[in-house]
C-alpha cells in the first residue's frame, strides 16, 4: 500500500477509536432521532396547510418542526461546525507535542502527505457519518410515514448531504489551519470556536448594524432600496453559515425560487410551482462554489504554513 494511504488508514482508525468521535456520533444520533420525532408530530399540520407542496412531503422530514426542537437541517447547520472543529483542532499540534511528528517525517514520505492524509481521513469519516445519518433519517422516516421519496426528492437529499459535507469540511480545514498555527491544542480549539461563534452569533448582529446605518434615508427610490438590500445580502454571504443555510434551504424546499429580492415584474406571471432539481442546483451554485473556495483557502493556508515550519522534536 502506498505510504499516503497507510497514514490515511491510521488516521481513520484513530478517529474511530477516539472518545471524541463516539461522543460526536452520539450527539448527532440524538439529533436525528429528535428532529425526526418533531418532524413526525408536525408533518400532518404542515401538509394540510399548503397542498401545492404536498408532492415534497418527504423533504419535510428534514425541514419542519413544532418549535420545541429545531429540524434536522438546522441541527446539521449548528452541529456541523462543531463536528468539523472537533475533528481537526489537534491534527498537527498533537503530533508535534507528542513528538511523533519528527519521527513520522523522518520516514521516507513527502511532508505534505501528513497534512493531506489528515484532511482526507477526516473528510472520509465526515462524509461517511453524514451520509449514514441522512440515510438513517430517510429510512426511519420511510418506515414512519410509509411514503417513499421520489427520485427527485432523493436527489435533493443527496445534494443536501454533499453541501453539508462541504460545510463541515470548511470548519475542519479552519481547525487544521489553527492546529498548524498554534502549538497548544486548547488554543487552536478555542480559536476555532471563537470564529464559529463570531459567524453564528455576532456576524448577523454586525451586519444588522451596518444595514440600519446605511439605509437610504432621503429620496427613497425602489432602486436605492434594492441596491441597499443587495449590499446587505452580499455582506451576510461572507459568512459560511449563511451560505450553507441558503444552499440547504433551497435544496430541501423546492418552492424557494430566488435567494435575492424579487421585483413585482419578476413575480408577475410566474406559476407558483416548485423548482425542478436542476434549477435549484443552479440557484445554489454560487453558494456551493463560495463554500468550496473558503475551504480551499483554509487548506492552502495550512498547507503553506505546515510546509514552511521547522519540525523539531516536541517544540
Amino acid at each position: 500500500m502506498h505510504p499516503f494511504w497507510v497514514i490515511v488508514q491510521k488516521e481513520i482508525a484513530d478517529h474511530l477509536r477516539s472518545w471524541r468521535f463516539l461522543i460526536l456520533v452520539a450527539l448527532l444520533f440524538l439529533t436525528c432521532i429528535g428532529s425526526l420525532y418533531t418532524a413526525m408530530s408536525t408533518l400532518r399540520e404542515a401538509v394540510s396547510k399548503d397542498d401545492a407542496q404536498a408532492a415534497f412531503l418527504f423533504l419535510k422530514l428534514f425541514t419542519v418542526s413544532d418549535g420545541t426542537l429545531p429540524p434536522f437541517i438546522t441541527f446539521v447547520g449548528f452541529l456541523g461546525p462543531l463536528f468539523g472543529i472537533a475533528m481537526g483542532f489537534d491534527a498537527i499540534n498533537a503530533e508535534r507535542n507528542k513528538g511523533t511528528l519528527s519521527r513520522l517525517l523522518s520516514q521516507p514520505i513527502y511532508r505534505d502527505y501528513v497534512i493531506n492524509a489528515k484532511f482526507v481521513a477526516a473528510l472520509i469519516v465526515i462524509s461517511a457519518l453524514l451520509f449514514a445519518l441522512g440515510f438513517l433519517v430517510m429510512g426511519m422516516g420511510l418506515i414512519a410515514i410509509g411514503i417513499p421519496p421520489t427520485p427527485e426528492e432523493f436527489g435533493r437529499l443527496v445534494f443536501f448531504l454533499i453541501v453539508s459535507v462541504l460545510y463541515v469540511s470548511f470548519w475542519l480545514n479552519m481547525a487544521i489551519l489553527f492546529s498548524t498555527r498554534f502549538r497548544q491544542a486548547s488554543t487552536s480549539a478555542l480559536a476555532a470556536i471563537a470564529v464559529w461563534l463570531f459567524f453564528s452569533v455576532f456576524y448577523p448582529l454586525i451586519v444588522n448594524l451596518i444595514a440600519n446605518a446605511t439605509f437610504p434615508k432621503e429620496a427613497v427610490t425602489p432602486d436605492s432600496v434594492l441596491s441597499h438590500q443587495q449590499f446587505v445580502q452580499a455582506l451576510t454571504r461572507l459568512s459560511p453559515s449563511q451560505l450553507f443555510s441558503e444552499a440547504t434551504t433551497t435544496m430541501l424546499t423546492p418552492s424557494v425560487r430566488s435567494l435575492g429580492p424579487l421585483t413585482m415584474e419578476q413575480i408577475y406571471g410566474a406559476i407558483p410551482s416548485p423548482l425542478p432539481l436542476g434549477q435549484s442546483l443552479l440557484l445554489i451554485w454560487p453558494q456551493s462554489v463560495g463554500l468550496l473556495a473558503a475551504t480551499a483557502v483554509c487548506f492552502a493556508l495550512s498547507y503553506i504554513l505546515f510546509m514552511r515550519q521547522e519540525i523539531r522534536s516536541r517544540n
Binding site: 484513530d14 507528542k98 513528538g99 511523533t100 511528528l101 519528527s102 519521527r103 523522518s106 522534536s313 516536541r314
Partner: peptide, 11 residues
C-alpha cells in the same frame, strides 16, 4: 533517525 525524547502513538 531517533529524535531526543522520541514520541509514539500512545493508543
Amino acid at each position: 533517525y531517533l529524535p531526543d525524547d522520541v514520541g509514539f502513538y500512545d493508543d
